[in-house]
Write a protein that binds this DNA or RNA. Structure first.
Lengths: 216, 216
DNA sequence: AAGAACATAGGGGAAAACCCTCATTTTTTA
DNA sequence: TAAAAAATGAGGGTTTTCCCCTATGTTCTT
C-alpha cells in the first residue's frame, strides 16, 4: 500500500512541485496539500495520512505550533519539517515537539526520497547541514548554556507586556501610564529584558523580540 | 518546437518541483537549472534558452543583478521573475532591468503556465497581488503622499548602512567610527530614517526595518 | 547646465534610555 | 509554609537618542 503524504506549505508553487516529484515515485501518494497552518488539523481528522511534509514558516499558525497540535492528537504521526532556514532555534523547537526529521529546501530530490523512506521506517532524518547545526547547539548547551546564541530565559508576564509596548514605539513614561505603574518600575522591566535577551539597547531588544517571536 | 526554459533558484527542491511540473506540459522543455546567480551567464552562452524563470533572491549574485547582466548580453531574453516577496522595491527594480513578468511563489501552476505562455508571446505578466503592488507604487509616485500605511520612501545607500548597524545594536558613536563619518552625520541619517519610516524612535525603526525587510 | 537628492557636519538643548544600588510587597512554587 | 521569583519603586547619575537649526560639497537626474 502506498505511503500517504500531506504537503503543508504556503507557497503553492513549491507544494505543487513537490507533489509532482512525489507522484512519479512508486509507493507514494500525495493525499492532500495545505496552504496554511490552520487547515491541517481538520484535514487529518477526515483523511488518513502517514507522513506530513511540514513547512516551518507557515502563515496563520506556524509549523512549530502545528507540530505540537498534531502530535497531541496523533502521537504517532510522522512529521518531516521542511524549512528555508537552518536555524538552531527552529530545529530544536520542532524536534522537541515530535517532528521526526528536518530538511532544508535546498536539498535535492534524492535526499528528499531518502528522508521520506527513513521517516516512514520509524527512524529520524536530518540534512547534513542540519546535523551540524544540531551538534553545535548541543555543544553550546553543554558548555555555557546561556552565552550561546538563541537561548532566551523565560520572559515574565509583565515583561512581555512592557516589551510589547516598547515594540509599539511607546516610551517608558507612556508605558508606565498605560500599565498604571511608575516610570521606575518600567525601567526595571526594561533592564531585565535587556539582560535576559542579552541586548545592549532597545534596537537589539526589538530585533530579538521579533526574531525569536517573544511577543504574540 | 518546444519552449526552452532555464530555472534559476537556489532551493533545489523548488527548482526540481517546477521542473517536474513543466516537463508534464506539452511544448515545454526544461533545458537547465542553476542554483546560484553566477552560473547563469555561462549557461546561456552554451545553450539555447527561450525563457528564464529567475528567483529574485539568489545567493552569490541576486536576481536583479543577474537580470541586468543577462539583458545586457541577450536583450530579447524573456525573464520571468519569481519571488517569495511581494515587495514594491524588488518588483520595480527587476522590471526596470528588463524582466517581462513577476510572479509569487504562492501562485498556482495554472497561473504559472499562463505566465509562461504570455511571456513567450512577447507580452508581460504579473500575479494579481503584484499588479496591486505596482499600482500602489505608481500611485505613490504620482501623489508622493506618505500617509498611506505601509508605504516606505526609498532608503538611500548610506541610510541603509546606518540602519543595518542600528539593528546590530551599535550606537550612533560607534556607527560613526565604523563608517568614518562624524556622530552628527550619523544623527542626520537616523533622523531621515525615522522620518521616512514614520517611526517615533529606534524601537519603531527597527521593527519596521525588519517587518518591511529594508535591510538585506 | 541647473536643480534635486544625497552625504556631510556643526551647535545646542530636551527627552529618553541606560546603569547602579537598594528596598518593599505580592505571587508563585518547591 | 518558607524560600524563590516577580512586581513594585526610589535616588542619582551617565550616555544616548531625538529634535531644532543651519550649511556646504558631491552626485544624480533631467
Amino acid at each position: 500500500m502506498a505511503t500517504k503524504i500531506l504537503i503543508a506549505d504556503d507557497h503553492s508553487m513549491f507544494a505543487d512541485g513537490i507533489e509532482s516529484i512525489l507522484n512519479r515515485q512508486d509507493g507514494i501518494e500525495v493525499v492532500g496539500k495545505c496552504y496554511d497552518g490552520i487547515s491541517i488539523m481538520p484535514f487529518l481528522k477526515e483523511n488518513e495520512v502517514d507522513i506530513i511534509l511540514l513547512d516551518v514558516n507557515l502563515p496563520e499558525k506556524n509549523g512549530i505550533e502545528v507540530c505540537k497540535e498534531v502530535i497531541a492528537s496523533f502521537p504517532d504521526m510522522n512529521i518531516l519539517a521542511i524549512s528555508m532556514f537552518n536555524q538552531e532555534s527552529y530545529v530544536s523547537e520542532i524536534l522537541k515537539f515530535g517532528a521526526k526529521g528536518y530538511i532544508l529546501k535546498n536539498t535535492g530530490q534524492e535526499e528528499l526520497m531518502q528522508a521520506i523512506q527513513t521517516i516512514e521506517g520509524g527512524k529520524t532524518f536530518f540534512s547534513k547541514d542540519v546535523t551540524q547545526t544540531i551538534m553545535r547547539g548541543l555543544m553550546n548547551d553543554r558548555k555555557s548554556s546561556s552565552k550561546s546564541e538563541g537561548f532566551i530565559p523565560k520572559i515574565t508576564r509583565r515583561e512581555k507586556e512592557v516589551l510589547k509596548l516598547i515594540v509599539q514605539e511607546f516610551t517608558t513614561q507612556e508605558i508606565g501610564e498605560k500599565l498604571f505603574i511608575s516610570l521606575k518600575t518600567v525601567e526595571s522591566h526594561r533592564s531585565s529584558l535587556l539582560a535576559k535577551v542579552n541586548a545592549r539597547n532597545t534596537a537589539g531588544l526589538v530585533r530579538i523580540a521579533l526574531e525569536k517571536k517573544l511577543i504574540d
